[in-house]
């Protein structure tokens, strides 16, 4: 009767290398490239790769409109017709967890698949 060990050293090395490769593939920051996720009133309108420059006109709620601009690996808002323009003054975002919110127009721009922020949430 053949009496072999459960795993030979060579098999062990192969397994470790494959597991390491799998872990790198799963957890490498921004492995798929970041994308801006656009929503209005909680409904997703589209996803835009941060590495593909473009301008996206957005019709928000309550008659307000804005333009989502993707350039230089980041997303920001221009041409907003909302009264406070907080969304337009927001700096460009590029990391997972960052968001630009136009409250009057109920429009959100969030980042997914990019490098992660160090914190779980932002107060303020």
């Amino acid at each position: 009767m053949e009496n072999r060990r459960f795993m030979t050293p060579r098999e062990g090395v192969c397994l470790v290398l494959l597991a390491a490769g799998l872990a790198l593939w799963l957890f490498w920051p921004g492995r798929t490239g970041g994308q801006a996720v656009l929503t209005r009133s909680g409904e997703e309108l589209g996803r835009y790769a941060l590495n593909a420059p473009q301008r996206v006109p957005v019709q928000g709620a309550n008659g307000f409109s804005l333009t989502l601009v993707v350039e230089g690996g980041a997303a920001h808002v221009e041409d907003s017709t909302c009264p406070d323009l907080i969304c337009q003054r927001h700096a460009p975002i590029s990391r997972t967890g960052e968001a630009i919110i136009c409250l009057p127009g109920q429009v959100t721009v969030t980042i997914e698949g990019g490098d992660r922020l160090e914190q779980d949430a932002l107060s303020g």
Binding site: A91, I93, L117, E118, Q119, D120, A121, L122, S123, G124
Partner: peptide, 29 residues
């Protein structure tokens, strides 16, 4: 995250502390 009001229930799923940032009033950092 209720409009910037953060409330954490328990710990993170891995048992570690939550890490909550405070917005810089002078910018977006």
């Amino acid at each position: 995250n209720l409009g910037g009001n953060i409330q954490c229930l328990g710990a993170k799923p891995d048992g570690s502390d939550w890490v909550i940032g405070v917005r810089d009033p002078a910018g977006e950092g």
